[in-house]
Write a protein that binds this DNA or RNA. Structure first.
Lengths: 240, 240
DNA sequence: TGTTTATGAATGAAAG
DNA sequence: CTTTCATTCATAAACA
């Protein structure tokens, strides 16, 4: 939408065609190009209130829409994401314009002022420009005191006292604290020969060349599933 | 990776270093824009098994990557978070798609059987060039075909599952899967009156009275705007 | 056919 | 860790 907004109407004649999609088969690699039917259905769902379908819903929708042309789950997902975001964006502009007018010259009291909180809260209320929807958007609270990111000082459950986690992004201050110290040794040892055995924080140098736990799922789990001894390899440019 | 969409391919040959980032110094309002080298290194670490670096590791990595452009600890932190989450999402979607096909043979003359994988992994899913890799985890295949697949309505490459609790909380009893008449039932119910249950949070399958947990902050609409009961209307052509 | 608009895709950042 | 939001890139489609 950055384009600014024209009146474009992507009418794509997918009329009776099974798929107006160019990549229908060859998988051309191009991006998904929804057919008119698909768009219609998606919009219908959106209008009905669907905004963030779950994975299952997405699958179901995908299956349904597949009758009208090639489509994948991610297409549906992205469609909703984009549509929602752009609707919001549009509305934001409208809201802005609305207030703009309002602020400039106070019109008569008969215009549909959303609520009473005009100008009381830092957040702006969406203009009443609902397309006959049952809901309105934008309750959105204002940007918070953008302080530091570490709002969650909690250690990862299960993390050992020693292995401190990177709770949250910190201020750009402390990170550069130390200059190039040699503490990088742990992670980026320079000696090609040995693997360090000290486990700094989470890095765990395991002499075991083949950890059995490679379940992707648990990777973030508290266990030290991540064995990253080979770091030095990577950074030393010597794969092995 | 960045190639596809957002990241774009801003070829920022970070060669000259300095920083391919736009936010150089002026306070940089922009977000971090990783250089190719940075991405490569991060991916290398990821492939080596690093998934949730500790604060220290993040520091070290940051310092190292800084040679290739501006970067902060939080960038590294977020990168790993996102990368991991998205890898997982992909996997999930694949899983869904897989089962989806599995459950009901989709008779699509147009689509050859093997189109399963979403062709989206521009970068991260690069070819299996694990030369220096000691092990990689890409479970890709799903285990447990037995049934218990829907442990949680997670998402697709981004699908969103908000109120996951509603999805299928009643498995406890049935232990194993169940008859999926048609996965579409949830989304496209056929009952004529579906509109009763005001707010089923998300699409609700069986008459589970989901609590009014408005946990989802929603994408912007305040109330649980996602009312999707009328889906059937739409898809049945009756609603409106 | 070149320019503009609309929108699919991706991903950094952050909230929950 | 999970989910959502915002921003940006890339490109098909519409337009002149």
């Amino acid at each position: 939408m950055e384009g600014g907004g024209g009146g474009g109407d992507h009418v794509q004649s997918s009329g009776g065609n099974g798929n107006g999609n160019g990549n229908g088969n060859g998988n051309g690699g191009s991006r998904w190009n929804p057919t008119k039917e698909q768009i219609n259905m998606l919009e219908g769902l959106y209008k009905q209130g669907l905004r963030t379908p779950t994975a299952e819903q997405i699958q179901q929708i995908t299956v349904r829409l597949r009758d009208f042309g090639h489509i994948e789950g991610k297409n549906v997902f992205y469609w909703f994401q984009n549509h929602k975001a752009r609707q919001r964006q549009k509305q934001k502009q409208d809201t802005y314009a609305y207030f703009n007018r309002f602020l400039h010259h106070h019109p008569s009291p008969l215009f549909p002022l959303p609520y009473q909180n005009v100008g009381c809260s830092p957040c702006y209320m969406a203009a009443p420009k609902n397309e006959g929807q049952l809901y309105h958007h934008y309750p959105k609270v204002l940007p918070i005191p953008a302080g530091n990111y570490s709002k969650r000082p909690t250690l990862i459950p299960g993390s050992t006292s020693q292995s401190q986690r990177y709770n949250k992004p910190m201020h750009k201050n402390q990170e550069e604290h130390h200059h190039h110290h040699q503490e990088t040794l742990d992670l980026f040892p320079i000696h090609p020969t040995g693997i360090l055995q000290s486990r700094s924080g989470r890095i765990e140098i395991d002499s075991n060349p083949c950890p059995s736990s490679s379940s992707d799922q648990n990777d973030g789990l508290n266990s030290d599933t991540n064995i990253q001894y080979p770091f030095f390899d990577f950074f030393c440019g010597k794969g092995n």
